[in-house]
Design a binder for these strands. Structure first.
Lengths: 155, 155
DNA sequence: TCTATTTAGTTGCATTTGTGACGATCTTTT
DNA sequence: AAAAGATCGTCACAAATGCAACTAAATAGA
């Protein structure tokens, strides 16, 4: 026997301690709650919400740019754009210089929905921070920043 | 003008600061890297790896227990179990007291694969911690713990 | 005891997602 | 300027996921 463990074999991996596992569960749980808000209120899917939020923040972007920024697959963006267009929440404009790309922009209706959802998002986050406590919130942000620095230029 | 902002309107929500968004992107990026390892080496899907890891850690569980522990949908577990069974990595045993439930247990082959994957997982995490730095890793863990405490007893 | 309800796990079906190929357009090379 | 290659967005198809219905078995209620 080599010390630490006595009779029972220690499991080679404790999932509750494994960072990718914990991150996934946490992300899913936290997103779920907010997702049900925009789903209940507007019937939006996650890719649709992401697209809306990205356009709301940046003004006018190509589909490719949206995907690059928010890590969504080409086709996911394409479909979300189509769906938002159906709602008349965004309109497309051909780039006259490069006629392959189209610039996507929110309509007034889209912007209005965005404003509302952004407010809900802030509310959600405020509540989250309150429950995490000053300390927990600060640690989480710092930890996420470290992670982002890692995988941003990572590998 | 009300101070802070000058000419351009501030976007109502900055995605790079929004916790659910950051968590999702981080979780996806971090998981992706490890997922490609077990995918390339064994052709495992995520639900399969999760099921394997859960059984490896806990020894023998019902499908329901696996799903509850790792937040996977019933049918996801059912299909992962089927697939692992095809590989002869686990076997089912009827519970004689309650003949609806089956106890799932890794075979020697399954255990061997698990050992290997668990080793890879540790390696991955070790490298991750190294890149995050002592500080970043500690903050991330603390932040995750705070989150877990939040959503565990949820609402 | 007989019925109604709950639980474990699977399956069919619809929805969502990713892959690969495509037409159109732009860029680079020769 | 023609040919080859890259990029933008879409679509058909295949794979993965979730939902609802189902069988079998246990439990609770009458």
């Amino acid at each position: 026997m080599t010390g630490k463990q006595s009779e029972a074999a220690m499991p080679p991996l404790v999932l509750e301690d494994f960072i990718p596992y914990r991150l996934n569960k946490a992300a899913e749980a936290i997103s779920q709650r907010f997702a049900s808000q925009y789903r209940d209120e507007y019937g939006l899917t996650r890719p649709e919400w992401r697209t809306l939020a990205t356009l709301g923040q940046f003004g006018a972007l190509s589909a490719t740019a949206i995907g690059a920024h928010s890590s969504m697959h080409k086709t996911k963006v394409s479909r979300a754009v189509f769906s938002l267009e159906q709602r008349h929440w965004l309109k497309r404009k051909r780039d006259e210089a490069d006629r392959r790309t189209e610039h996507l922009e929110l309509t007034p209706a889209g912007r209005k929905a965005y404003q509302h959802l952004a407010t809900m998002a802030h509310g959600y986050e405020t509540e989250l921070f309150a429950r995490l406590g000053e300390r927990g919130a600060a640690e989480l942000k710092a930890g996420l920043s470290a992670l982002e620095a890692y995988y941003r230029q990572g590998r």
